[in-house]
Amino acid sequence: MRSKSVSLLLPFVGLLAGSVVVVLANPRADSGTIEGKVTYTGTPPKMKPIDMAKEPTCAKEHNPPEMAQNVVTGPGNVLEYVVVYISAGGPPSPTPTQAARYDQKGCMYIPHVLPMQVDQPLQIYTDDPFAHNIHPLPKLNPEWNKSQPPGAPPIETKWSKPEFIEVKCNIHPWMHGYFAVLKTSRYAVTDNNGSFSLKGLPPDKYTVTSWQEQYGTQSQEVTLAAGETKTITFTYKVTPYLY
């Protein structure tokens, strides 16, 4: 009886050991990449220049003025600041211990969209010689609002539920950004060519999701074989209005 149960268990143990070996001994050989672009069809809204006259230091620093960043387009009908991430598939990703960093500099949030994983430490810095208030507007996580005068240490925090959180400064109402709090650390934000690349993915069936602050989420299924690179495109239908 005992020998039977052991023999029954053996294949599982073998399977487990095998997969551990694959992960530990050979992390890269079979890992693949999902890359591509985020594009749009239609007429995007025209971004307006940001009037920073209320904060003369910033108005001086941004000359010509910065444009609003709700919908940032590039040549070839591409969209910048789109978060692309693995929403299903692959092994679970451990919570990074390295803090995600968000900066307030010259009355702008840098980066405009900051992806991070649930429970990953988040540090919010200010470089500006005047006060800001950091006011994230979550729906699922607790909303808070903190003042950060010049020279104040970074605000250290984290978010415990996945959510796209708008961030604003009430003193400088043009300051507007997002925390993309995700269940994974497999994410990318499109650059000014609209490009993204998700590397180091073990073979699996994945759901890849993109998120743009005006146009929301889209998802695609991608099956990745060992060592394979697949190219996908997300296309948003845009309208000339902000909502």
């Binding site: 208030n133 006011h135 909303e143 808070w144 609002n145 903190k146 003042s147 240490p153 009430n170």
Partner: peptide, 14 residues
């Protein structure tokens, strides 16, 4: 403590 839900922030850190 700040008035949560409004622009009035908390100054407790500073």
């Amino acid at each position: 403590t700040g008035l949560d839900g409004t622009p009035m922030p908390s100054f407790a850190d500073n």
